[in-house]
């Protein structure tokens, strides 16, 4: 019997090694190693053997089973690996092709810069407020210390509307609305659309965007204003900036300043961008005029403040080197898709 077992084992080992397909291999397994296979048949015959013979035959049977199973597993794994290889080899995909489906749109450059500056201010404790685009004469002028017939009204060509209203010429009216809403002390910004009655050309628009900023507290000095402006502009431009203040007249601040930054193109040496002065005019600012604080319901003997106005449209043009302001409200997707 041992001889027959060994003979079968030898034959089967050959068949396993030679199996050409997984199916062929499986057939051999069922025939020899299966529950009703040839080895199982030998097992049944064991009972008829003498104890001595049984031990010897059992060993031979086990050894044949182990070696056949190992050979089978090896062959099976080889078939699986080959199948996997073959599948992988078939599955070439050209991943350099652009993906189908939605190509994301883009945000308007003015939105981008507004968001950026808003979060910068938010991190410094400034609330973002909104005001109406159609304003009263009071909020746009009188409350800002620009009484009727004041020549300063000429500084801003105004769109007048029926009913004595107007399109706000700056975001400054939100100063008074903000003071009334928040009360002192306060830190606020107000970005938004403003209007001036100007002919449109590559550098002038009747509709543009500003950002008003204001801080009111017990003691606010020019030194504090300078600190915030330097910090803010450093954040916007992503590097340290050199600023300077010089006198500027705006009725709602006293003293009033024009803030210049050292030209970033030439570093202050003088170039066409800064008209060879080394400085670029960036924003008007100043300490809040006592009359404006009063209009906002704040006692100027107890509180002071600073305010500034940032031209967002100009900032966008500087950042993206846009040479014609009219692109911004053209609605032209050839332009807008670039952002």
């Amino acid at each position: 019997m041992i001889g027959r077992i060994e003979e079968l084992a030898g034959q089967t080992l050959g068949r396993v090694r030679e199996a050409g397909t997984p199916e062929e291999l499986e057939a051999v397994r069922v025939e020899v190693l299966g529950r009703k296979g040839s080895l199982a048949e030998f097992g049944k015959l064991m009972g008829k053997l003498s104890p001595e013979e049984r031990v010897a035959a059992g060993k031979a049977l086990n050894s044949a089973k182990t070696s056949l199973e190992a050979a089978y597993e090896l062959k099976k794994t080889a078939f699986e690996s080959a199948a996997l290889e073959a599948r992988l080899a078939r599955e070439w995909v050209d991943l350099t092709m652009p993906p189908p489906g939605i190509v994301p749109g883009s945000l308007h450059p003015l939105t981008r810069i507004q968001n950026e500056i808003e979060s910068l201010f938010f991190s410094m404790g400034f609330a973002a407020l909104d005001g109406p685009e159609v304003e009263t004469e009071f909020h746009n002028f009188d409350a800002l210390n620009i009484p009727p017939d004041h020549p300063a009204r000429d500084m801003q060509d105004t769109f007048w509307l029926e009913g004595g209203h107007l399109l706000r010429t700056h975001t400054s009216p939100v100063q008074v609305r903000g003071m009334q809403r928040l009360g002192p002390p306060l830190r606020m910004i107000a970005p938004g659309r403003v209007f001036r009655n100007e002919e449109v050309d590559p550098s002038h628009e009747h509709t543009f965007y500003q950002l008003e900023g204001m801080m009111v507290d017990r003691e606010v000095s020019i030194a504090h204003l300078l600190y915030f402006m330097k910090t803010l502009l450093g954040g916007i431009f992503g590097r340290e900036v050199t600023v300077r203040l010089r006198p500027g007249f705006f009725p709602f601040v006293e003293p009033g300043f024009e803030l210049d930054i050292q030209c970033m193109v030439c570093g202050g040496e003088g170039c066409p961008v800064c008209k060879h002065s080394g400085w670029v005019e960036l924003l008007p600012c100043g300490l809040v005029h006592p009359n404006v604080l009063r209009a906002g319901g704040i006692n100027p003997d107890e509180y002071g403040g600073f305010a500034f106005g940032l031209g967002l449209t100009r900032l966008v043009m500087m950042r993206y080197l846009i040479d014609d302001i009219r692109w911004l409200q053209s609605g032209d997707l050839r332009f807008l898709k670039q952002f």
Partner: peptide, 20 residues
């Protein structure tokens, strides 16, 4: 001359601003 005024950080409480 305003250039003679050094920037100074104000002493103020740190408070989160109201969200718009």
């Amino acid at each position: 001359g305003y250039e003679t005024i050094p920037p100074v950080a104000p002493a103020m409480p740190v408070t989160p601003p109201p969200v718009n």
